[in-house]
Design a binder for these strands. Structure first.
Lengths: 199, 199
DNA sequence: ACCTGAACACCGTTCAAGT
DNA sequence: ACCTGAACACCGTTCAAGT
C-alpha cells in the first residue's frame, strides 16, 4: 500500500469499500463475491481498492474489527439495570438476528480465515479480548450482586458464554433454522443453569 | 459425473482422493489447497478426480460425512458404563484434540461452505441429525438414572451441548490455545451445571 | 497523490483424445 | 469404462500510464 496523504479521504474511501464489501458478502458470501463486484459496488477501480486494503482477507478483517464491540456499551448499561442474564439474552438476540439475516456464513468465514491466517487473526484477537474484558467486568459485578455463582471464574464464564453463543448461532445457520426466539430461549436455559448460585 | 461400472474401484478411488485431500487441507486449509495438489498427492489426473467428485466442495462434504459419527458407538458404551457427563467429556477431548492438530479451520471451512451451499449442507444435516439422535437417546437414559434434570428437553440438551462443543473448539483455534485439558475442563464445568438436577 | 484498467499469475473445471 | 493433460474460464493482484 502506498503512503496516504489525506487521512480523511482515506477513512472515507475505506468506509466506502467496506460498505460495498458487506453488501457483496451478504449477497454471495466471502469466497463467492469477487473483487470486481466489490469495486463496481463501491465505484472504484481495482487499483484504487488496493490502495486502501492489501487483500480481500484484509477487508473482511477490517469489517469484523469494525463491527465487534458495537454493542458492548449498551450491554453494560442493560446489565446494571436489568441484571446479567436478561442483558446477555438481549445481546444474544441481536447476535442471532444478524445470523438469520445472512451474516451467518460471514461469521463462519471470518473464523475460518482467522484460524488460518495469523496476520488477519492478530487484530481480531485484540478486539475480541476487549469484548471479553468488558463482559468479564459485568460478570464480576453480577457475582457481587449474587446473581452469578461466586465460585465461577469470571473470565472463563465470559469465554464459555461467547462460545455457546457462537456455537448456537453457527448450528442454527447450518440447519437453516430461522426461529430467533427459540435460539434465545435455548441460550437463556443454558446461561441460567450455568450461572445460578448453588447452596 | 459419468456412470461408474465397478463400484469397488469407485470406492477405492474415492478413498484415495479423500485421503489425499485430507492431507492437503490439513497442511494448507480448504481454500489454499489446490486441486492440482490434491491430484498430485492422490496420483490421479484432474479428469480422473472429477469422475468421482463433482467439485472441491463435494470432497470436503464427503470427508465431513465420513468422519461424523465415527465415535457415536463408543460414546454410547461409555455413557452406560461411566455416566453421561464423563462420556461426554471423553468425546469432547477427542473433538478438541482434532482441533489442535490443525483440523480447526477445516471444521470452520465446512461450516462456512455448508451454510452457503445447500447441496453440500443437505447430506451433512442428515448425518448430523443422526448423531443428535444417538446422543439424545443417551440423554434420555441419563435422565431416567437421575443424572440429568428430567425437566430438560433431551433433544435441546444435545443440540446445546454440540453447540457449546463446537463453539469452544472454534474459539480455542481462533486464539491459538492448544491446552486441550483446559478446554475439556471448561466444557465439563458448563455441562455439569447445565445438566444437574434441581430440587 | 490518487486513480484507471489492461495485463499477469493462478486455479477450478471441462473435454477431446488415448487405452 | 476409465484415464490423461492441455485448454478454458475466471478471479485476485499488480503496475505502467494518466491526471
Amino acid at each position: 500500500m502506498a503512503r496516504l496523504a489525506d487521512p480523511e479521504l482515506a477513512e472515507r474511501r475505506r468506509r466506502q469499500i467496506m460498505d460495498a464489501a458487506i453488501a457483496c458478502f451478504r449477497r454471495r458470501g466471502f469466497h463467492q463475491a469477487t473483487m470486481a463486484e466489490i469495486c463496481a459496488e463501491a465505484r472504484v477501480s481495482a487499483g484504487a481498492l488496493y490502495r486502501y486494503f492489501s487483500s480481500k482477507a484484509d477487508i473482511i478483517g477490517a469489517i469484523a474489527e469494525d463491527k465487534r464491540g458495537d454493542n458492548d456499551q449498551a450491554f453494560l448499561r442493560a446489565a446494571e439495570e436489568q441484571g446479567f442474564v436478561p442483558a446477555m439474552c438481549l445481546a444474544a438476540r441481536g447476535f442471532f438476528e444478524k445470523f438469520s439475516e445472512g451474516d451467518g456464513s460471514l461469521i463462519a468465514d471470518i473464523f475460518s480465515e482467522a484460524i488460518r491466517d495469523d496476520t488477519l487473526a492478530a487484530p481480531l484477537r485484540k478486539s475480541d479480548a476487549q469484548s471479553v474484558k468488558i463482559f468479564t467486568r459485568a460478570v464480576e459485578a453480577a457475582q457481587q450482586r449474587g446473581e452469578i455463582d461466586a465460585r465461577l471464574d469470571p473470565e472463563a464464564v465470559t469465554d464459555t458464554l461467547f462460545a455457546a453463543l457462537e456455537g448456537i448461532g453457527l448450528r442454527r445457520a447450518f440447519r437453516r433454522d430461522i426461529h430467533t426466539e427459540a435460539a434465545v430461549s435455548q441460550f437463556r436455559a443454558l446461561a441460567e443453569r450455568f450461572l445460578e448460585p448453588r447452596k
